[in-house]
Design a protein around this nucleic acid. Structure first.
Length: 229
DNA sequence: AAAAGTTCCAACCGCGGAGTG
DNA sequence: TCACTCCGCGGTTGGAACTTT
């Protein structure tokens, strides 16, 4: 297991690990070009550094990623892209290699499951196709008339018509209006949309809002594009 | 039980940036 | 300014472990 330059390659054994640990304890981290000589290892400096950072370094967390860690990783990846070292920096005990490996297998799983899902949907769609099905356009109607419309409708005989059309439109369960949800948010959180309890937008709120937007945007540049729209 | 396929993870490789003479 | 060295990063690979057929 030796490369053309005479240095050992491949998997590390316990003896090599011990030598590297001793060296790191004695001289500290860094000066990697000196490490093979100091530790008495027949390995290149890069290999030593990698072994230390990804495996031997104290406080390295092993085992599965928690839900919180995965959630944070996804958010950070949306923000930063494949900046594994930066993402790992936000996940205590995790190395960039761990994060990268996890992400790659996570994405592979995701792509795989997406393909499966699409295939199933396609099959379902094909099974549901009926020959010569004619789809007629349906007139759209307000699920709930606006205040000004309501006034007009109440004072005229159009009410009956609107009810008839309404029955053909969105069901009552779907007719929840966005502003109603907005007010519910206010009640639930005891905060005003965009603002704090007093309705004033603090820096803290702004950061929180920005982060929420960024989870929807792919990258910072996407956010800028949205702003520009 | 065994072959084939898949997943996971440690390690390698090449590139670019920072520092230095 | 240029050339060189060192370091750190991200992409890729190899093979062990595990799962499926």
């Amino acid at each position: 297991m030796e490369g053309s330059s005479g240095v050992r390659k491949g998997a590390w054994n316990q003896f090599e690990d011990d030598l590297l640990k001793d060296c790191a304890n004695l001289y500290g981290e860094g000066k990697w070009h000196l490490v093979p000589q100091r530790a008495g290892l027949n390995r290149c400096r890069k290999s030593c550094r990698l072994r230390w950072l990804n495996y031997l370094k104290p406080n390295i967390k092993r085992g599965d990623f928690s839900e919180d860690e995965v959630d944070l990783m996804i958010r950070m990846h949306k923000l930063l892209g494949n900046r594994w070292s930066l993402i790992a920096g936000r996940l205590p005990g995790r190395t960039s290699n761990d994060v990268k490996n996890y992400w790659n297998s996570y994405m592979r799983r995701k792509v795989h499951s997406d393909k499966k899902e699409k295939k199933v949907k396609k099959q379902e769609a094909e099974a549901n196709v009926k020959p010569h099905q004619v789809i007629k356009p349906v007139p759209r109607a307000f699920s709930k008339p606006t205040t000004c419309l309501q006034e007009k409708l109440v004072s005229s005989s159009i009410v009956g018509v609107s009810e008839a059309v309404g029955a053909n439109a969105i069901s009552s369960s779907e007719s929840e209006n966005w502003w109603e949800t907005l007010l519910e948010d206010k009640e639930d959180n005891n905060t005003c949309f965009f603002g704090g309890e007093d309705g004033v937008v603090s820096d803290q709120n702004l950061i929180s809002i920005t982060c929420d937007f960024l989870t929807e945007a792919e990258t910072w540049s996407d956010l800028l594009l949205h702003i520009g729209d």
